[in-house]
Design a protein around this nucleic acid. Sequence first.
RNA 1: GUGGGCGUAGCUCAGUUGGUUAGAGUCCCAGAUUGUGAUUCUGGUUGUCGGGGGUUCGAGUCCCCUCGCUCACCCCA
Length: 427
Amino acid sequence: MANLFQSVRGFNDVLPADSAAWQQLYRIAGEVFAAYGYGEIKLPLLEHTGLFKRSIGEVTDIVEKEMFTFTDREGDSLTLRPEGTASCVRAGLEHGLLHNQQQRLWYAGPMFRHERPQAGRYRQFHQFGVEAYGMTGPDIDAEVIALSARLLKRLGLTDVTLELNSLGGSEVRKRYREALLEFLLRHESSLDADSQRRVRSNPLRVLDSKSETTQALLADAPSIQDAFDDAARAHFDGLQQALSDLGLAYRLNNRLVRGIDYYTSTVFEWTTTQLGAQGTVLAGGRYDGLVEQLGGSATPAVGWACGIERLLLLQKALGVEIDSSAADVYFCWLGEAAQREARKLAEQLRDMVPGLRIVLHADGGKLAAQLKRANRSGAAVALILGDTEVEARTVQVKSLRADAAGASAQQILPWPELAALLAGLVK
RNA sequence: GUGGGCGUAGCUCAGUUGGUUAGAGUCCCAGAUUGUGAUUCUGGUUGUCGGGGGUUCGAGUCCCCUCGCUCACCCCA
């Protein structure tokens, strides 16, 4: 109990029992990204603090109170990345990937936010993200959303809803913000305490307040659609048309705003009710101003990120089957001579049958104890090699699963025939 | 950062108005079976009762402080 050391709060270990689910998730995600022609970009975990302040927004909660920031030995302020988009844009600019070009990129890895941990929220958590640059039309918005839908579907995640909104573009957003602010200031005293605090710092955030009285008040608030110009309307209509063409159901939610400043037009979220308070599983939108804001030429961009732990939690809640990572074969041996042969045979089998998973028993012990371990290992088959078998150059092949009705539970096989038989166990 | 719940064996938990050496199940180990698992039977190991202090003849139990976990708020993936 009273261990000398514990992991840092909110920083979790993933144990072997869970890592199979992680590996399967990464494999499937990689396949889906490849299916749309997206290339992986590997980004550092640490960036200059200013990058995040400038991109996410000085007055957002992420920047104000959630970043892991420290001063290094040279006096520079560095921050463990709280999200991936800022790094992606920085890298794209640094390596000339964005100027007058189109890019389809994805990334994966840990992100860090100094929040109080709770279900589905950790201080080190992991995200997949997708970013597309240099394309202005709603077709690319539809593409990244279709990609996300395919990913969720491939992962067996059914109980999710796509919510959609548009902030209309940076001009529209700015104009709407002023109209909304004016409305909110008129009713400031009727707002809940959290919303009152947000009115001046980030008025759009008041829209998705959880307070019922605030929501009731907002019924009379100006609607963002009313602030749309022709271009904004055409873009949003085009996106909805594309989603309908693909048969992707969505729910319009004009209260949907994202907490990060750089979103300008399309915003969307996949949500679930299965995960307690953390209902957002994947979210993103269009951020046409960010590249320029970080020093590049004006470049349209759209992307999303998903929380890997939340996907895994949802898989678990929905009872999604995970591939077994158990061994196929457990190799038992009795005596020193047999151990030496078993060691060589196991290596030969690994050469001859790629993908075969063999556990070679270690540390001796009686056969009953070895078979007990074999059974617990999850292996389908136990191999048994003793002096008798070494002499005859054979091995006992014992089935550990009763499901194959009629199949002989145990047989004796000459060494040369072993590989062919065990090849049948590889999935 | 704010609030609620919870910390007893590797795991899941019981532990009476404070009372002697802190328990069960499971897991693990050994034997029954000196070369056959998963079933059965027998035996065995496992504890700074989260940590520190206090009250008391006596504290797992009461009080104070503290740490951790967890859920929710805030916020977000």
